[in-house]
């Protein structure tokens, strides 16, 4: 890591930490100003984060999309960007940061443990389909995590309502129906991106491993998560589940996404353990 990259990434993490504290402040003290501070800090963090990505790009000579660290670098940027975009567009939703921002911080922390010097793009990564696959994976991840953040807001609101403190509900907190509608659109958007991610990934997999579907743990979790969000849409539109149940489902499905992206580390051997691909000669295409 170059010094610019290190400093800017750490500064971004610092900003995200500050934004997290502010989001928790909004939750604890129900003050609208805390939300604005959280949003501002997250926005400032995004700028620093963009500098870190640019520095990595310059140092490695390619857009950072290989290995765990680079995936974290860009993936967390996408997560925060989606959160900031939604919070700016829909008033009162910055409270979603109570879930999205800590998740971003933990993911950044994991990425830092995997950080290494920039390396050239090895043959397995030299594929246009991979670029499509990874891009849609980031969008999917960012969308679903923001959706889970909104689900958290809904559950927080419901909890406050159940405690009989309806009169003390912050005026900036969006009504449940609004959150619910936004959640539905985000899940639908994520679902569509998730479909493109799986489709492009399968084409890449055939050209790399000779099989478009291997029932690899990551593939299986990915399919399961997609089905899970598909069920969310059906539960909402067909079964007309209550908003509370749907919010819990959105949070539960996020666990699947976390497994797809990071849980693979629990499996000692998987085609998707990208850290090994191309690292050794002569195994050009397959991890050991």
């Amino acid at each position: 890591m170059s010094s610019i990259e290190t400093w800017s990434f750490w500064l971004a993490i610092l900003m995200y930490a500050f934004a997290t504290v502010s989001a928790f402040g909004a939750l604890a003290f129900r003050g609208g100003n805390y939300q604005s501070v959280a949003l501002g800090a997250a926005g400032a963090g995004l700028l620093c984060h963009a500098v870190a990505i640019a520095a990595r790009w310059v140092a490695s000579g390619h857009f950072p999309y290989i290995e765990d660290y680079e995936n974290v670098l860009v993936g967390t940027f996408a997560m925060t960007a989606a959160y900031v975009a939604v919070a700016l567009r829909f008033k009162g939703t910055a409270l979603a940061g109570v879930l999205v921002l800590p998740a971003t911080l933990i993911t950044c922390g994991y990425g830092l443990t995997q950080a290494g010097p920039p390396s050239p793009v090895t043959p397995p990564y030299q594929s246009g389909w991979l670029v499509v696959h990874v891009t849609f994976a980031w969008i999917t991840y960012a969308t679903y995590s923001t959706a889970a953040g909104l689900a958290a807001i809904h559950l927080i609101r419901r909890r406050w309502e159940r405690q009989g403190k309806t009169d003390r509900l912050p005026s900036w907190l969006p009504p449940s129906e609004r959150i619910d509608g936004l959640l539905l659109r985000l899940v639908a958007f994520g679902f569509l991106n998730n479909a493109v991610m799986i489709a492009s990934g399968s084409i890449w997999a055939y050209r790399l491993w000779g099989s478009y579907w291997s029932w690899d743990p990551v593939e299986t979790w990915s399919l399961l998560t997609w089905l899970g969000y598909g069920f969310y849409l059906h539960a909402k539109l067909t079964l007309r589940w209550s908003q509370d149940r749907l919010a819990w489902l959105a949070l539960f499905c996020l666990l699947g996404i976390m497994m797809v992206f990071w849980g693979v580390q629990l499996v000692p051997t998987s085609y998707h353990l990208f850290r090994d691909i191309g690292a050794r000669v002569p195994w050009l295409s397959r991890p050991r």
């Binding site: 043959p123 397995p124 030299q126 389909w129 050209r207 790399l208 000779g210 002569p282 050009l284 295409s285």
Partner: peptide, 20 residues
């Protein structure tokens, strides 16, 4: 033929894996 770019002929694909 490269990794990710197999040879497609006769209904089969030849995917480069490793060398020695």
């Amino acid at each position: 033929v490269r990794v990710n770019h197999p040879l497609d002929a006769g209904g089969k694909s030849w995917l480069l894996q490793d060398s020695g």
